[in-house]
């Protein structure tokens, strides 16, 4: 539940910032790629914290990390129980997800 609480809170902050700054209404929606992140890193902190899309994307990422975290906890539980068969299965599932993340980064 912690993951969806953090995610929901970040999204609400993002929408509050978006509603408070009508200049964003007609602005093009940024794609959160490497260039956008590099541009943010070079921006002043006040600009980053005032950008609604930073919070919206952060909320989406927090949500996307929730099932991965759940898998790690599941794997850890199997490890404690010394159930090596299911430790292996969990590792395979995490590897497939890692491949999809690697694909998305290199694409």
């Amino acid at each position: 539940m912690a993951g969806i609480t953090v995610s929901g809170a970040l999204m609400l902050i993002g929408f509050a910032l978006y509603a408070a700054q009508p200049s964003w209404y007609d602005a093009p929606i940024p794609v959160a790629n490497f260039d956008w992140l590099t541009g943010l890193a070079a921006s002043p902190l006040s600009a980053v914290l005032g950008n609604p899309f930073v919070f919206l994307y952060a909320g989406i990422f927090a949500l996307m990390l929730t099932p991965i975290l759940r898998l790690f906890i599941t794997g850890w539980t199997f490890l404690v129980e010394r159930d090596w068969h299911y430790v292996g299965i969990t590792v395979i599932v995490l590897t497939v997800i890692a491949i999809s993340i690697a694909f998305s980064i290199t694409h």
């Binding site: 995610s7 929901g8 999204m11 609400l12 993002g14 929408f15 978006y18 929606i29 794609v31 959160a32 790629n33 899309f53 919206l56 994307y57 909320g59 989406i60 949500l63 996307m64 997800i97 999809s100 993340i101 694909f103 998305s104 980064i105 694409h107």
Partner: peptide, 20 residues
């Protein structure tokens, strides 16, 4: 989700509103 994200299909406004 990561694959769709990498192709630039994720609209943060619609997605976040729907998630909420």
């Amino acid at each position: 989700a990561f694959i769709y994200f990498s192709y630039g299909h994720l609209d943060p406004l619609y997605t976040s509103a729907a998630v909420l």
